[in-house]
Computed example of a mutant assay.
Amino acid sequence: MTDSSPTDSPRAQIKRQQIMAAARQLFLAQGYERTSTETIRQAAGISKQTLYVYFPSKVELLSAVVTEELAGFTLAQLRPAPTTLSELRAQLLGLAQGFTRQMMQPDALALLRLLIGEAVHLPELRGTLRRAFPARLLARVEALLSAAHTAGLINAPNLNLSARMLVGPVISFVALDGLLSDQPLGGGPPAPPGLETLTELVDLFLLTVAKGSRG
């Protein structure tokens, strides 16, 4: 006897992806409110009972779709803890590049806007928004800074605060140049910040945690 769920099998995972793909297409095309579970069921080619086995509510389905979309950002390949400042700099730059590129893809921005709009009156989506958007980047940056601080490469006694000092500006590119972009229709997707800009940002941040910069 096992504790595995019937929705954990390879066949069930295919079915789950089938449902999510149909829901993703509909959410992007007509929004959350105008997308009913019935239209999702029809688009996925499944029964109502099957839909509710995998996703008991439309809110849970939206949460799963957005989480998968934004989790496509893998926070770069996890590497060994940095042993030099140049390694730390390279890893922080890789995170900033990967995050802004992924989050500023048109579909990612569309789903993020949709999630933000619904999270205003659906509190259960706020945790999804936090986990999918800033929390993963913040945790990864904090882990890198912790390793660098322990190795004596930087001075960051308040790891969370130091991580926020980098993550905030990185997210500002997604928020201001992506989510709130006033680019006219047909003007193409918003462009993520260039390498030169992000390099300057990371270098400025490293000045705040340089050894001897505090106390």
Rank of each mutant, 00 (worst) to 15 (best):
L51R: 03
I14T: 15
P157S: 08
P192K: 05
R136N: 14
T7V: 06
A21I: 04
S9D: 01
Y32L: 14
T37Y: 00
E60Y: 11
L129R: 06
V66N: 04
P190S: 04
L153C: 06
K15A: 11
Q17G: 14
R214I: 14
F55R: 07
D107G: 12
A132L: 07
D177S: 06
D177C: 05
T84D: 02
A108C: 13
Y52E: 05
N155M: 14
L92C: 03
L129N: 07
V141E: 00
Q105E: 11
I14A: 13
H149K: 06
R11L: 07
R164S: 08
Q105K: 08
L92Y: 03
G152A: 08
A64V: 15
A147Q: 09
Y54W: 10
E196S: 15
V141N: 00
R140T: 05
R130K: 05
A22I: 09
A191W: 07
R24F: 07
D107A: 12
T128A: 09
S86E: 07
T83F: 06
E33G: 09
A96F: 01
P189D: 02
P169N: 02
L180N: 06
M165G: 11
M1N: 09
R113F: 03
P10H: 00
L145F: 01
T150I: 15
V65I: 12
P80S: 12
L61C: 15
V167A: 06
H149V: 12
A148N: 08
L138N: 12
E118S: 10
S213Q: 15
G94I: 04
L70C: 02
A108N: 15
Q105Y: 01
V170L: 00
I154Q: 10
L206T: 15
L70S: 01
L145S: 01
A110C: 12
F99G: 03
G187L: 08
G194I: 12
T35A: 11
Q42P: 05
L51M: 05
T83Q: 11
A175P: 00
Q25E: 14
S4C: 08
L28C: 11
L125N: 10
L114S: 03
L93M: 04
L51N: 06
